[in-house]
């Protein structure tokens, strides 16, 4: 009541902004880094790490095998892409366990 009209308006606007932000209706903000879905038990983390390693390796083998079949160069690409698949698997694992910046 004691504030000037302009000051009162601003505080209302601020409060509105705060309320909007609380409800997620404010201006688009930079989303914080999403939470890790597997921050649960060590078992689930271990299973996920194993799965990521195998999945990347499978993709590498599939690409290498396919390229060899297509170009008739067995086993050149298979060997190369097994290594690349392994590296990609380690990259996946690093993405999971890397310390947050």
């Amino acid at each position: 009541m004691s504030e000037t009209p302009g000051g009162g308006e601003r505080s209302l606007k601020e409060r509105l902004d705060a309320a909007r932000k609380r409800q997620g209706l404010g201006l688009p903000s930079k989303p914080n880094r999403p939470v890790d879905p597997t921050e649960g038990s060590a078992l689930s983390l271990g299973l996920r790490v194993g799965m990521e390693l195998v999945a990347a390796m499978l993709v590498g083998v599939a690409i290498g095998w396919g390229l060899d079949r297509w170009l008739g160069t067995r086993p050149v690409f298979l060997g190369v892409f097994i290594l690349i698949g392994g590296a990609a698997g380690v990259l996946n694992v690093w993405r999971i366990v890397a310390p947050r910046q």
Partner: peptide, 12 residues
Amino acid sequence: IEVVSYLSRLIS
């Protein structure tokens, strides 16, 4: 390597 890592989502 990054492309293979991206594709591995499709498996995992």
